[in-house]
Simulated assay, not measured.
Amino acid sequence: MLDTRPPLPPFDAASAAQKVRLAEDGWNSRDPARVALAYTPDGAWRNRDTFLADRDAITEFLAAKWRREQDYRLIKGLWTFTGNRIAVRFAYEWRDADGQWWRSYGNENWEFVESGLMARRIASINDRAIAEADRLFHWDRGETGRRPDDHPGLEELGL
């Protein structure tokens, strides 16, 4: 039996927003195994030009991602929802091994099963080089990486 991952579909505005924030918190932990547990064992992913079909592949993908994308900080925002689907927009900042800072912008479409696990994730992402002085995502990553509640979101930052 699959684990239950509340909030569960069908979503309303509050539960959809909560699901988005929980996903943001998970991704900001940069813990591939923890993040992968939010997906069904046979979860289907498209991330840019990469297609994945199970939790093990998702875990490996995320581990490689966060080795490459250093000082990663992500903000997600609810775009819309219906039934068992949520659309999200996001931006994240990171630096590469050469010290170049980037801001990556994207949209995700999520589909959930009754247990609240994500069965499908479709992500489209674009990267833009930025100067370190142009960074907008400033919070102490601490132990969890969680964005503080008082840190501006995408709308407040004009993103």
Rank of each mutant, 00 (worst) to 15 (best):
M1W: 12
M1I: 14
L2A: 07
L2D: 01
L2I: 09
L2T: 09
R5I: 14
R5Y: 10
P7W: 03
L8F: 10
P9D: 05
D12E: 07
A14F: 00
A14Y: 07
A16L: 04
A17K: 03
A17N: 07
Q18H: 07
K19C: 11
V20P: 03
R21A: 13
R21W: 07
L22C: 05
L22Y: 05
A23N: 09
A23Q: 05
D25Y: 08
G26A: 15
W27C: 01
W27A: 04
N28H: 05
N28C: 13
S29L: 12
S29N: 12
R30S: 10
P32W: 08
P32A: 05
R34G: 09
R34C: 03
A38M: 12
T40L: 08
P41V: 06
P41T: 07
P41F: 05
D42R: 04
R46K: 15
N47P: 12
R48P: 00
F51M: 13
F51A: 14
F51C: 14
F51Q: 12
L52F: 08
A53V: 13
A57Y: 05
T59E: 14
E60P: 00
A63Q: 09
A63I: 12
A64T: 15
A64K: 15
K65F: 12
R67W: 00
R67S: 10
R68M: 13
R68C: 10
Y72R: 04
Y72W: 15
R73H: 07
R73P: 02
I75H: 02
I75T: 04
L78Y: 01
T82L: 14
N84P: 07
R85V: 00
R85I: 06
I86C: 01
A87P: 02
R89D: 08
A91F: 05
A91V: 06
E93G: 07
E93Y: 03
W94L: 02
R95L: 12
R95C: 13
R95Q: 15
A97P: 00
G99W: 06
G99E: 14
G99R: 13
Q100V: 13
W101M: 03
N107C: 13
W110I: 04
E114V: 15
S115P: 02
G116V: 03
L117H: 06
L117F: 05
A119E: 10
A119K: 11
R121L: 09
A123D: 07
S124H: 15
N126M: 08
N126W: 11
R128Y: 11
A129D: 03
A129F: 05
I130Y: 01
I130T: 05
A131R: 11
A133R: 08
D134V: 09
L136M: 01
H138T: 07
W139I: 11
W139P: 00
R141N: 13
R141F: 10
P148D: 03
P148N: 05
D149C: 14
H151S: 00
P152Y: 00
P152L: 09
L154C: 02
E155Y: 14
L157F: 09
G158R: 02
L159Q: 04
